[in-house]
Amino acid sequence: MTDDTAREDSITVDCTLDEPPEQVWRALTEPALLAQWLMPNDISPGIGDRFTLQGSPDAGGAIDCEVLAAEPPRLLRYSWHGGEGLDTVVTFELSGTTVGGTHLRIVHSGFATAPARGTVTMLRAAPRRPTARTVMQSGLKLAA
């Protein structure tokens, strides 16, 4: 599992699964299966379909979603509108491996649509509890 830090406005997670794409697709799009690993939901994987992921209150509560792309068994993309008031998009890309498994890439993007791209860069550069100095230094890098 790797984390792509090249894109500043998204979180990318890659993994390799033993099961074939058709089976992984079911786990992404059948409500009962999706509920077991993500959240309780009423997913319906047709383009334009709306559904809700029932996040626990401490995890931001309900997340409103709309299917933006669905190409079984290789691409699923939906909008992710959480209680934080931020519009993001989650994309699942599936591809078969030579040994019959699946390479799954999850991209959660669109953070930059609210905070500026540079702001996220600044957050990355800053430590957990940024001091005035580190934020400003990061800010200077931004301006450069």
Partner: peptide, 11 residues
Amino acid sequence: IEKLKDVLKGM
């Protein structure tokens, strides 16, 4: 993803 792996094993 770790949870997903368990779900897939059980399918």
